[in-house]
């Protein structure tokens, strides 16, 4: 993991106008992973999409941290089920129109 793929939490807090405590709480609950380099806090850019989603759930829908955790777990399960459904649908095509 190179530093260029890391985004400073300080900048993010300023960009999204959120408190550091919110980001720290997301980290503590395991929803995001904070990297600490020379006492500066960073987040990997691959996590930005999910991070924004967490902000939206919190600010737009008033979902608390535990709720966000539940939502993300369920979304992950839903994604797995959708993938499985897709695989099964594709497999079903093997037996259709025979």
């Amino acid at each position: 993991m190179t530093n260029k793929n890391l985004i400073s939490i300080k900048n993010l807090c300023s960009h999204y106008e959120i408190e550091f405590s919110f980001v720290d709480a997301l980290n503590k609950i395991g929803l995001i992973q904070i990297e600490i380099i020379e006492q500066n806090h960073f987040i990997h850019q691959d996590q930005i999409g999910d991070f924004e989603k967490m902000i939206r759930l919190h600010t737009e829908l008033n979902v608390n941290l535990e709720g966000i955790d539940v939502v993300f777990n369920l979304l992950e399960k839903e994604k797995e089920l959708r993938n499985e459904l897709n695989t099964l649908k594709n497999r079903l095509r093997l037996y259709e129109n025979d």
């Binding site: 989603k53 939206r56 759930l57 737009e60 829908l61 979304l75 839903e78 994604k79």
Partner: peptide, 15 residues
Amino acid sequence: YRKLARKYHPDLNPD
């Protein structure tokens, strides 16, 4: 609004 938003929010209903 909040009740319906929680039900239909795009983040909760991908694709």
